[in-house]
Amino acid sequence: MNIFRLTGDLSHLAAIIILLLKIWKSRSCAGISGKSQVLFALVFTTRYLDLLTSFISLYNTTMKVIYIGCSYATVYLIYMKLKATYDGNHDTFRVEFLIVPVGGLAFLVNHDFSPLEILWTFSIYLESVAILPQLFMISKTGEAETITTHYLFFLGLYRALYLINWIWRFYFEGFFDMIAIVAGVVQTILYCDFFYLYVTKVLKGKKLSLPA
């Protein structure tokens, strides 16, 4: 464990909790893509199946359980409890265009052709694009609530910190996982445009709105 991975994990945790609290406190999931949240729940479920087969550390297990629990709670709030506030008309990204290619790629490019390993690979690839429905929704409505942008910022920060973590691990531990690294780079690139808007607008106290 290095400082970049730890702060990356905590940043990820912050993102998840910010979103859950925002929805819970405002009793509204307006502006949030339910599809992205379902994809993230699928990501955590397929990746953390190793909770049942191997124990790594108390930290590792605790974080996995919290991530899974929070992601399902978020999905529950969006599609069940606060369904009336869900903005489905603007959440029109076709997720099958993500799931099908990502599933195919996981079968073709993986470390080991075993069910658990393929599901893990699937989750890595899927995570790299799971935010697209949310970004698509923002581009469609042309704006995002500031709290939603904080959520996205922490999610992107987590990816950037993980990239530094992998450089660190490569130099000091000789460890690298090509699948995770390539997917992580793709995922981080997807946030770049958003980061730019976040720094130039949100941090200067303006609302994030896109030109028409």
Binding site: R5, D9, H12, D50, S54, I56, S57, N60, M63, K64, Y67, H111, D112, E117, W120, Y162, N165, F175, D177, A180
Partner: peptide, 10 residues
Amino acid sequence: CHRTPAKDEL
């Protein structure tokens, strides 16, 4: 033979 990397990351 493949060496499956340790899944210690989240």
